[in-house]
Nucleic acid binder design. Structure first.
Length: 257
DNA sequence: ATGGTCGGCAACCGA
């Protein structure tokens, strides 16, 4: 079983590279963030034509999440119940019997801002949801864009970025509680050396070429599922095609049918 | 080299 996550920054703008990757890699499950499309405009036929089933929840201009899967998903929920509710950032479902959660964690704008407080609250709500609805002893996949880098080896300039949004101890502490609960960071498990990034800021000229990246996208799994993982890797996609995203594909392969 | 990102969507907001 192959699972992946990808922040598209507009699924319509990125559809050619997304479909190219889908046909080439044939994942069983793909979690998508920042679709930036209302449900009525989601490009459903492109996925159906390629043998994939879809779940999506979007809104105008901002946010938007989708889960694309070979097997039809069941038990779909689109609301992270709790204090910090916002549409189009969360999907929970089951695919082939495995619970799957796709998240687009708020970016947080700037440390100390209202949006930063909201980001911390959102992560807290996710943690509460895991405690309430799941057990770390059962298979669970959590994938998405968390907008948080964990350690020095996960950003290009740890000294310069420490304390900034996306690399702040309060965010990292909440991520740490996900791991304490029982989620395993699969890229870290298979490639602990670090220095591998999933995101480069468009506003920094030639950030990709200059290796000025962050690791903010994750595939996480509870121990029973993580124990079956064969590998996890970053795929920058077909950069020769027009309009590559500022994020990469992140992929995990499991020893499951 | 006197500029320097995207995308959505129609003036800026969000990342």
């Amino acid at each position: 079983m192959k699972c992946a996550t990808f922040n598209t920054n507009s699924i319509r703008a990125r559809l050619p590279i997304l479909l190219d990757w889908l046909e080439r890699e044939q994942p069983d499950i793909l979690c998508i963030q920042e679709t930036k499309v209302q449900d009525k405009d989601f490009p459903d036929p492109a996925f159906r034509d390629r043998g994939y089933s879809t779940l999506y929840r979007g809104q105008k201009s901002y946010n938007g999440v989708a889960i694309v899967s070979r097997e039809r998903a069941t038990d779909a929920e689109f609301t992270l119940t709790g204090e910090a509710e916002e549409p189009a950032r969360f999907i929970r479902c089951r695919v082939a019997g495995i619970p799957v959660i796709n998240v687009y964690v708020p970016q947080g704008f700037a440390v100390g801002s209202e949006k930063f407080v909201y980001k911390l609250r959102w992560l807290n709500t996710l943690l509460d949801h895991l405690h309430a609805a799941f057990s770390p002893d059962q298979p669970l996949l959590v994938a998405g864009d968390f907008n948080v880098a964990l350690e020095a080896k996960d950003v290009y300039d740890p000294e310069g970025l420490r304390g900034e949004v996306g690399f702040h101890p309060d965010e990292q502490a909440l991520m740490g509680r996900l791991f304490e609960w029982g989620l395993v960071d699969l890229l870290r498990k298979h490639h602990p050396e670090g220095g591998q990034f999933t995101f480069w800021d468009y506003r920094i000229p030639n950030a990709l070429k200059r290796k000025m990246g962050w690791r903010v996208d994750y595939i996480l799994a509870t121990r029973p599922l993580a124990d079956t993982s064969r590998d996890c890797w970053i795929d920058t996609g077909a950069r020769s095609l027009p309009r590559p995203s500022d994020h990469t594909f992140l992929v995990a392969e499991f020893a499951l049918p």
